[in-house]
Design a protein around this nucleic acid. Structure first.
Length: 350
DNA sequence: ATCTCCCGCCATCAA
DNA sequence: TTGATGGCGGGAGAT
């Protein structure tokens, strides 16, 4: 078969003039190759050795990719050295599970209308959220996503530092919050116990987030941009929009809610979920038409009722730091949004 | 200089 | 123990 990677091919054929381009070795590219190699019909299982040799990389790199892919439902570890290919079709459910999980985690919300989340799924779960991590009480449910059941070895924080868990929490940030753009640095601060006495340093976390962001980017889940004003690099959530769709591979097992995406619809590219109920008093919204004629092909953020969101979400963060960070975003987005609304599209890319 | 983030050592886990 | 996994962070390429 054709090797998706020229580099790999070169390496395999007794390379001769490989200048060494860092970009050709990026996790993102590797992930793309990995995907094009396995996202096709007839694939039900994947062997890590096979992947490594076909892609021309060390095993270690395959683990990175496989771990984040698994945390989003595309793969599932079946056995040593072997993963089951679930396909992109499994993503919607995985994301929904993550969303529910995320809301459930910090159910200590304050005022505001209770949840409007209809958890058809059973309960359970939990893992460290944005607050802290202490007891790991697992009981894996029938979720489609790995639960990272900790062997419950007191002091085993290996799992809570896993790339997979970090990925899920990173994704939850987008699914369970109104944030749709965030810098890795801020994400690192929000994720996990946040520095201090709890594990991983921010520095390390950011390094990991770069890895995660790269593979999620190659999957078109997120996109790199820059904060309109700050210029600072950030990532924007695209959700299941840039999905190459189930082009060829489609022999899915779960043929249920295919496009059953939460609040996403055609006109809306990236709708952040309002965990608030739609029916309850959803009054406010002085001005800010919840809709803009941003008729742009690509992602054009959308509709957000800042006031509403701000007041609704504020209470879910426990410490001042997060609150500040949060308001910072709300403010930044406000200006950015109004700016973009009647201006031109946002075409900032690396 | 700062931002990215690849590379691979080596601690852990599982057989 | 051996082999499979996968934290972790040094340090080099990209900007």
């Amino acid at each position: 078969m054709a090797l998706p990677s020229a580099y790999a091919a070169a390496v395999e054929s007794g390379s001769k003039d490989i200048p060494y381009c860092r970009k050709q070795k990026s996790l993102g590219l590797l992930c793309s190759n990995f995907l094009s190699l396995y996202d096709r019909e007839g694939i039900e299982t994947i062997g890590l050795d096979d992947a490594a040799s076909k892609l021309g990389v060390e095993r270690r790199r395959i683990y990175d990719i496989v771990n984040v892919l698994e945390s989003v439902g595309v793969l599932s570890r079946k056995a040593k050295n072997r993963y089951t290919w679930k396909g992109f079709g499994a993503i919607p459910k995985a994301l929904e599970d993550l969303k529910k999980e995320g809301f459930r985690e910090n159910g200590s919300a304050a005022a505001d209308t209770s949840c409007s989340e209809k958890v058809s799924d059973d309960d359970e779960d939990e893992m460290c959220s944005y607050v802290n991590s202490l007891s790991q009480n697992d009981k894996s449910d029938s979720s489609s996503i790995p639960k990272y059941a900790v062997p419950s070895k007191s002091g085993d924080n290996r799992k809570e530092k896993s790339l997979g868990l970090l990925t899920q929490n990173f994704v939850k940030l987008f699914l369970c919050t109104d944030m749709d753009m965030i810098s890795l640095d801020d994400a690192a601060k929000l994720l996990l116990g946040d520095g201090k006495h709890t594990s991983m340093t921010t520095r390390t976390k950011v390094r990991r987030l770069y890895d995660i962001a790269n593979v999620l980017s190659s999957m078109k889940f997120i996109e790199k941009t820059h904060h309109p004003e700050t210029r600072k690099p950030a990532f924007r959530w695209l959700g299941l929009n840039g999905k190459p769709d189930n082009g060829t591979a489609n022999s899915m097992v779960l043929s249920e809610s295919k496009k059953r995406m939460f609040g996403t619809d055609l006109t809306n590219t990236t709708s952040k979920r309002f965990k608030v109920d739609e029916d309850a008093h959803h009054v406010l919204k002085p001005h800010n038409p919840t809709r803009v004629g941003s008729s742009h092909d690509d992602k054009g953020k959308t509709v957000v009722d800042w006031e509403s969101l701000a007041s609704t979400y504020r209470p879910q963060y426990h410490n001042q730091a997060l609150k500040d960070l949060f308001s910072h975003y709300v403010e930044a987005w406000k200006s950015w949004y109004s700016e973009v609304a009647d201006k031109s599209p946002i075409q900032l890319m690396s």
